[in-house]
């Protein structure tokens, strides 16, 4: 299938790289399907491109690239929605917010994207956890 992307032009993609948010993303409840593509040669960054709206593309980062410890509790509702059978199938990504200078970018650690790699179902999990912030600075202030 050929899709239009925001940052990479037209791309031919495999169905197996499509993730589905059955409940949509917060603020984008109408967008269900995203193409999840790792940034080439980078183990931390990925594009999360909407298939329904080519203008919507999130940049995600692996939380381990931002904080040493990211120990979160995923609610049983999400585990059920994602039909998680093996914990090893669960992948976590945080959404980057880049505004102005890249040095000022922030990472949303409060609402990570949880993907079941096995069946490509995804949920944006909301955490009742005061340790993690919606706008965690990407670059540590020195």
């Amino acid at each position: 299938m050929i899709i239009q992307t925001k940052f990479l032009g037209e791309l031919e993609i495999e169905d197996s790289d499509i993730i589905t948010f059955e409940q949509g993303m917060l603020g984008f409840s109408h967008l269900r399907q995203f193409y999840f593509l790792a940034v080439e040669g980078n183990p931390y960054l990925s594009y999360m491109q909407s298939l329904e709206d080519s203008d919507i593309c999130f940049i995600t980062i692996v939380p381990a690239a931002v904080v040493e410890e990211y120990n979160i509790e995923i609610c049983s509702d999400t585990v059920e929605a994602l039909k998680v059978k093996d914990q090893k199938d669960v992948e976590l990504y945080a959404i980057l917010n880049i505004h102005g200078e890249i040095e000022n970018a922030t990472v949303n650690l409060k609402a990570p994207v949880v993907i079941n790699r096995h069946n490509k179902k995804a949920v944006q999990e909301l955490l009742n956890d005061d340790r993690y912030d919606i706008k965690h600075p990407l670059v540590k202030e020195s």
Binding site: C57, N97, I98, N108
Partner: peptide, 10 residues
């Protein structure tokens, strides 16, 4: 806040 953050992140 998360809805707004998502929107702003795009």
């Amino acid at each position: 806040a998360v809805e707004l953050e998502n929107q702003s992140s795009t």
